[in-house]
């Protein structure tokens, strides 16, 4: 029993990271109908920003976080201008390929500058964690779960209770109508990319102390996040969160009870199962064909 609880806790912790990346990915999809295949690289960049600021430059942890998030925000804006904006009137395929190109560019740029050696980042706190009988709640996992919860609440408040949030929703639902009302559509999309990059960056900062910071980090997380968003129901915000947690738990349980080397495969097996049985995902509407 204790083992299962312990595994559930660990799974939720790692699942929360997938959920954050999936969330950024869903927000961009809803605003632009573009699947951003570089979303995982945002997380990887967040991790490297932390390594550079806190380890290499020796800045305090909190300052490292602040600088990393500012850098990620700027990066999100740059990404929008360079990768999405020039192709905004084109069909789905060129834009998707362009984001794939961006993910290769980012990964290999980091690889070229920083080399293939994984780096470690210390945890946010020296405090080891809390024990509940046989269950040990690691501090970093607690930080991850708490931060994710806080972000989900903040995001809910932002979208449901601010005019800017409403405008962003309006843009994602009908761009032309939004522009007729005087909403700055280009600005809202810029904001979406910026925010998604920050979300990805936070995920990277959170997960860096658990996994090594390496160039492979982005792809590793992104693939789970993609799977999470399909399982949850493509384009659905609560779905992305539930899907992320589900995958985190599934792969932790799978690694413990079935196989460690194939840990990374469980997410995809779950994904294939959903595609065959329920392609619209947990919360998704039935996929309708439109003339």
């Amino acid at each position: 029993m204790a083992i299962i609880l312990q595994l559930l806790f660990t799974g939720l912790g790692i699942g929360a990271v997938y959920a954050l990346v999936a969330l950024g990915f869903v927000l961009i999809y809803r605003a632009t109908n573009v699947v951003n295949f570089a979303q995982g690289q945002f997380a990887m960049l967040g991790g490297y920003c932390m390594v550079i600021t806190t380890v290499d430059l020796g800045l305090p942890y909190w300052l490292g976080v602040v600088i990393s998030l500012v850098v990620m925000a700027l990066f999100g804006a740059l990404f929008n201008l360079g990768v999405y904006y020039p192709l905004r009137h084109r069909s789905f395929l060129p834009v998707v390929i362009s984001t794939i190109g961006a993910s290769i560019l980012i990964t290999n740029l980091v690889l070229a500058i920083y080399g293939p050696e994984p780096t470690t980042l210390p945890g946010m706190t020296d405090y080891p964690g809390i024990s509940f009988g046989a269950v040990f709640l690691d501090a970093q996992y607690l930080v991850i779960i708490a931060t994710t919860l806080a972000l989900v609440i903040l995001q809910y408040i932002f979208f449901e209770h601010t005019m800017v949030g409403k405008k962003m929703q309006a843009v994602s639902q009908d761009k032309e109508m939004a522009s007729l009302l005087g909403i700055n559509v280009t600005g809202m999309i810029m904001l979406t990319f910026t925010y998604s990059a920050v979300l990805g960056g936070i995920a990277g900062i959170l997960v860096a102390p658990i996994l090594f910071v390496s160039v492979g980090l982005g792809a590793q997380i992104a693939l789970k996040a993609f799977a999470a968003s399909i399982i949850g129901g493509f384009g659905d915000v609560p779905g992305a969160i539930v899907g992320g947690l589900l995958i985190g738990v599934a792969e932790t349980l799978g690694a413990f009870y079935i196989s460690v080397p194939y840990k990374d495969a469980f997410a995809f097996i779950l994904l294939f199962a959903f595609l065959l049985i329920r392609p619209q995902g947990i919360f998704g509407e039935k996929i309708a064909q439109k003339a």
Binding site: M163, Q169, M177
Partner: peptide, 20 residues
């Protein structure tokens, strides 16, 4: 009409003032 389908009536109406 082009009502924003995922927003409430009040929210749709409030957004009408986005030009001011």
């Amino acid at each position: 009409r082009r009502i924003f389908p995922g927003l409430t009536v009040r929210e749709n109406i409030l957004l009408g003032a986005s030009n001011r």
